[in-house]
Design a protein around this nucleic acid. Structure first.
Lengths: 151, 151
DNA sequence: TATTGTTATACTCTATAACTATA
DNA sequence: TATAGTTATAGAGTATAACAATA
């Protein structure tokens, strides 16, 4: 009826969205054992990677709005994985740190996440996997510049 | 502090999500001129690719719940791009079809979407692009089997 | 005046349950 | 009984505006 309509499974957008959705389902299933969501693990991992980040710094790295971070931290603090500490050099900021329990949980969860990812990629050979990651990184990097220029 | 924490930009999940989000932003920006969202275009394209699909068939192809399709069709019908027709052979079903205006709009929107995608991929050479798409298709295919087995 | 964290609010997308009409 | 479409509703996730405390 209408020509020039690319089938869904040849569209980059559809493929990226579908691949992400499926990986996310598996990661969430694996993390359920550890009572964590993929979203929470991402936040915990950013905190783990660089202690003393503020809430705004963390939100920028995750690409999540600072107002969304508030509720996530409330929950992670409630279950004892994270601590907010007033930054004494700038009392507007909170410095985020993992608790001992948080460190244990992140280590286990990171292993679970990496296992799921490896299993998800099992269909690809090593070279294809390396090139896939490199291509995605290139797209993210090139997009970064534009997005910042436009923002 | 915690070792074995993979940086975000080496995680497949983060890369897929980020790449998709950025492409989606650009596609939506390009489609705004045509008063369409990427979501609407995906629905229109499925209808265009195979006339006489029912709402449930369309929802399955898109991976969108049938209840969500209802409101989307209401809007597309309201702006005159789509028609619901009772299937006379099974009066429970609606057969979906583009209007003449819908066909014109889809053709223009598909061109805009393809242009954005090509620009988004400009950083990659042809071989890398082909391999990226192939890898994503392989991941989608392998995941399909598992998801169906589990569902 | 500007910034950090916070609350309130709203909007989109998604998922579930229950209804209707048809089979 | 089961299925297609529909409605109502609730839950995530996200974004905006406005506020208090601090710079």
């Amino acid at each position: 009826m209408v020509d020039n309509v690319t089938p869904l499974d040849e569209r980059l957008g559809y493929l990226l969205k579908t691949a992400y959705a499926r990986l996310a389902l598996r990661v969430d299933a694996a993390l359920a054992t550890l009572a964590l969501t993929a979203r929470q693990l991402a936040l915990l991992s950013v905190i783990a990677s660089d202690e003393a980040l503020s809430q705004i710094e963390v939100s920028a790295r995750l690409g999540v709005d600072r107002t969304s971070i508030v509720a996530m931290l409330d929950e992670l603090e409630r279950i004892g994985l994270v601590e907010r500490r007033r930054d004494e050099r700038d009392r507007r900021r909170n410095t985020l740190a993992l608790t001992a329990s948080g460190r244990v949980r992140v280590t286990a969860a990171e292993k679970a996440r990496a296992d799921v990812e490896a299993d998800f990629l099992a269909r690809l050979d090593e070279d294809s996997t390396r090139r896939l990651v490199a291509a995605l990184q290139a797209l993210a990097a090139s997009s970064d510049r534009r997005d910042h220029a436009r923002a």
